[in-house]
Amino acid sequence: MQEGSSEQEFNSIRASIAILNSNLDQQNQKKISVLNELQNLQEKIRKEGAESKVKKFVSLLENLKLLERQESEIRCDFDAKRSSLEAEVSDLEEKIAAGSDSKMLSRGLDGSLNESLLKLNIAKRELAARLRAIVSIKRQLDDAPSQSELIQYERRLSELNAHIQEKLQQTRKFYATYNALLEIKELMLKETSLLNSINSQFQEAIASTTGRMKLIESMQGIVKGSQQKLGKVQLGLQEEQKVCDALKERYTVQWRSKDAAILS
């Protein structure tokens, strides 16, 4: 009866070792799955050009490497524990074969079984912690945008950029119109002031030769100033025309190159 109980305890210890081996194999499979997913995500990053997510993936990869080191340490510890358990099993088998005292053997088996169960529970907790860490990393990787989302973001940014450019052109046009009207207003005020001055002093100026000479000189100065102002305006117009011609030429070249690319 005691030998049957001993065999059951041996079988329980061996089952514990088998469970530990199975858990370790499952953990290795999950690690391989996570590594494959990371490789797929890295390939997507290279194809989609999602540079803004590179730092996040690097951090996740560093965490994964840390978990791999921890796994290696756990595996070494597991191998040591397994070797110890196998040595204990061999020792117990030798004792059974040698016909040792059943009470001492039973106590030894109970102690070994309790120790094995404790080690098994510790290994389960460590495995659960590892699985939680892997699931956390997987969730963070799932937060990365997909290719369709990146395309949608790019489309929205392009539309926003086009809208901003349109508003900018309108704003520039309004400012140019305002400046032109303001300049026209200033010229009209000067013209009105000049006409009022001439009207008030004309009769007095033509009454004498000196007054007429001063009036002529004043008019010549006004004409000269107007010509200088007209020259500045014409220079500005020429500069604006050059810029306009350059833009037309550039757009014409771009359109021709696009047409050539489409035809080819």
Results as ranks from 00 to 15, higher is better:
Leu64Asn: 00
Ser59Ile: 02
Gln234Ala: 06
Ile137Trp: 09
Ile164Tyr: 07
Asn121Pro: 01
Lys258Phe: 12
Leu66Phe: 07
Leu194Ser: 08
Arg107Ile: 05
Ser22Gln: 13
Ile216Pro: 02
Asn11Pro: 04
Asp142Trp: 03
Glu191Gly: 02
Lys167Trp: 07
Phe174Trp: 06
Glu37Gly: 11
Thr209Tyr: 10
Leu38Ala: 12
Gly108Pro: 05
Lys173Phe: 11
Asp110Gln: 10
Lys248Val: 07
Ala129Asp: 15
Gln8His: 15
Asn21Glu: 15
Ile96Arg: 07
Gln241Met: 04
Ala133Lys: 15
Gly236Asn: 12
Glu73Arg: 04
Ile262Asn: 05
Arg132Ser: 10
Glu249Met: 06
Tyr175Arg: 06
Ile17Phe: 08
Phe57Asn: 13
Ser197Arg: 04
Asn21Gln: 14
Ser200Ala: 11
Ala15Lys: 13
Asp25Phe: 11
Ser5Met: 13
Glu7Tyr: 14
Thr210Ile: 08
Asn23Gly: 09
Lys31Tyr: 14
Ser6Pro: 12
Ile164Leu: 08
Asn23Val: 04
Glu166Leu: 08
Thr171Pro: 00
Arg125Ser: 04
Lys47Met: 09
Ala98Glu: 15
Leu182Asp: 08
Leu35Ile: 09
Ser22Tyr: 12
Ile184Phe: 11
Lys167His: 12
Ile164Ala: 09
Ser83Leu: 10
Leu131Trp: 08
Gly231Ser: 10
Cys244Ser: 14
Glu126Cys: 01
Leu247Asn: 15
Ser208Asn: 06
Lys47Gln: 11
Leu168Met: 11
Leu194Gly: 03
Ser264Lys: 10
Tyr251Lys: 03
Gln169Asp: 12
Met1Ile: 05
Lys103Met: 02
Leu66His: 12
Asp143Trp: 03
Lys65Cys: 00
Ile198Lys: 05
Ile206Gly: 05
Lys119Cys: 09
Leu127Met: 11
Ile13Met: 15
Ala15Gly: 03
Gly49Ser: 02
Thr210Cys: 11
Ile134Tyr: 15
Glu115Ser: 11
Ser197Ala: 05
Ser158Leu: 07
Ser106Phe: 03
Arg107Gln: 03
Gly49Lys: 00
Gln8Lys: 15
Phe10Asn: 07
Glu43Gln: 15
Asn63Ala: 10
Gly111Pro: 01
Glu149Cys: 03
Ser6Arg: 05
Gln8Ile: 14
Tyr251Gly: 01
Ala261Asp: 10
Val223Glu: 02
Gly221Asp: 14
Met219Lys: 08
Arg172Ala: 08
Leu230Lys: 14
Gly49Ala: 00
Ser112His: 03
Ala87Met: 02
Asn114Thr: 10
Asn121Met: 13
Leu92Gln: 10
Arg139Pro: 00
Gln238Phe: 01
Leu237Gly: 06
Gly231Ile: 07
Asp77Gly: 06
Asp101Cys: 03
Lys56Asn: 06
Gly4Tyr: 13
Leu41Trp: 12
Leu160Gly: 05
Ser257Gln: 14
Thr252Asp: 00
Glu239Asn: 02
Glu93Leu: 07
Lys167Thr: 04
Ile122Thr: 15
Ser208Trp: 02
Leu157Ser: 14
Phe174Lys: 13
Leu20Ile: 14
Tyr175Ala: 02
Ile184Gly: 07
Ser106Pro: 02
